[in-house]
C-alpha cells in the first residue's frame, strides 16, 4: 500500500490534475475552432519558461509560470498582428509564430547551457510524470492528514491550485464564455468584449499548459486540450454536460493511462516500462475514437445504422 501511496498515487494525481485543467479549458478552444491554439500555446510557452528559469534557476517556479503567461500573450498578439496587418491567413500566422517561438526557446536553451542541467527539450516534450513521489505517506489515513498532505510534491500542489483557478474561471465566466464563443457580435454589442474574453481564455490556457507541461510534456498538453473536449462533444449537446463529461474523460485518461503504463507491460509479461505521460494521451485518444464511433447520437456507427434504417423505409 505504501508503495502505491508513495510512488503511484502522486503520479496519478499529477497526470489527472494536469489532464483536468487542460481538458476543461479545451472545451472552449474546441467550440471556438481554436483547438490548435492549444497546440500553439504549448509550443510558445517554451521560451517563456526558459527565460523564467534563467531568472530564478528553479524548475516549477512561479517565475516560469509568469514567463509562460507572458510568452502566450505575446504570441497571441503577434499572431493577431501578423494576421491583421500582414493580411495572412490565421492558420498560417499561427504556424509562423509558434514554430519561431519554439525554435527560439530551443536555441536559448542550448545557448545558455541550461540544457542538460535542469531543463531539456526532451523533457519539455515528454514531461516527467514518474518523478513525482510522496515519501511521507504510509497509510490511507494520510490522505486526510493535512500535515502529510502538505508534503505532497510541489508540482501537485501547484496543479491543484491551477485547477481551482480554472474551475473558478469557468464558473464565473460561464455565461460570458458561452456567448462570446457562440456569437461574438452579439457578445460585443451586449458589452461582453469577445476580444478580452478570448485573451483571458488564452491566458488561462497558458497557465494550465505550463502547470501541466512539467508533468506531462508539451505534446500531451495538446492531447489534453483537445481529446477530452472532443470526446464530450460527441456525446452531448449541452454545454454544462459537455464540461462535466470532458472532466470525467480527463480524469479517467489520467488514471487509466498511468495504470496501463505502470502495470500493462508487466501484465503482458514484458520487462520494459513505457512513458506514462504518453500512455495518458493514448488513452485520451482512444476514448475519443470510441466516442466518435459509438456515441449514441453522433457516433459514426449509430449514424450509419440510422441512415440504413432510413433508406430501408
Amino acid at each position: 500500500m505504501d508503495i502505491f501511496l508513495q510512488f503511484d498515487l502522486p503520479s496519478i494525481l499529477l497526470g489527472s490534475l494536469a489532464a483536468l485543467a487542460c481538458g476543461l479549458l479545451g472545451n472552449f478552444l474546441v467550440l471556438r475552432k481554436q483547438a490548435l491554439m492549444g497546440d500553439a500555446i504549448s509550443h510558445v510557452v517554451l521560451p517563456g519558461i526558459v527565460i523564467g528559469f534563467l531568472f530564478t534557476h528553479e524548475t516549477s517556479s512561479w517565475a516560469m509560470m509568469l514567463g509562460a503567461g507572458g510568452a502566450a500573450i505575446f504570441a497571441v498578439l503577434l499572431i493577431e498582428l501578423i494576421r491583421r496587418i500582414g493580411n495572412v491567413e490565421p492558420g498560417a500566422a499561427m504556424g509562423v509564430v509558434f514554430t519561431t517561438m519554439f525554435a527560439a526557446g530551443v536555441v536559448i536553451l542550448e545557448q545558455t547551457g541550461t540544457a542538460g542541467v535542469h531543463l531539456d527539450v526532451e523533457h519539455a516534450l515528454y514531461g516527467n510524470l514518474e518523478s513525482a513521489i510522496w515519501l511521507d505517506a504510509y497509510s490511507l489515513s494520510d490522505l486526510w492528514n493535512w500535515q502529510v498532505l502538505m508534503t505532497l510534491p510541489e508540482s501537485i500542489k501547484q496543479l491543484f491550485v491551477v485547477n481551482m483557478l480554472v474551475i473558478v474561471f469557468i464558473v464565473l465566466f460561464f455565461k460570458e464564455l458561452k456567448i462570446s464563443s457562440f456569437d461574438p457580435l452579439l457578445s460585443a454589442s451586449l458589452g461582453f468584449s469577445p476580444k478580452w474574453l478570448g485573451l483571458s481564455l488564452i491566458v488561462m490556457v497558458a497557465i494550465a499548459a505550463v502547470a501541466a507541461f512539467t508533468a506531462v510534456g508539451s505534446i500531451l498538453v495538446i492531447a489534453m486540450f483537445i481529446c477530452p473536449a472532443a470526446t464530450a462533444r460527441m456525446l452531448t449537446d449541452n454545454l454544462k454536460a459537455q464540461l462535466f463529461i470532458s472532466g470525467i474523460a480527463s480524469l479517467s485518461a489520467g488514471l487509466f493511462g498511468y495504470l496501463l503504463a505502470a502495470f500493462g507491460p508487466g501484465l503482458l509479461g514484458y520487462e520494459f516500462s513505457v512513458s506514462a505521460a504518453g500512455m495518458i494521451a493514448v488513452v485520451a485518444g482512444l476514448q475519443q475514437v470510441l466516442a466518435m464511433l459509438f456515441a449514441p447520437h453522433y457516433g459514426v456507427v449509430m449514424r450509419r445504422r440510422r441512415q440504413r434504417a432510413h433508406a430501408s423505409v
Binding site: G38, F225, A281, Q288
Partner: peptide, 15 residues
C-alpha cells in the same frame, strides 16, 4: 480539432 487529435495521439503513441 481533427488535426489536434491526430497530432497529439500519434505523437503519444510514438513516445
Amino acid at each position: 480539432a481533427a488535426i489536434g487529435t491526430v497530432l497529439s495521439t500519434f505523437f503519444a503513441v510514438g513516445m
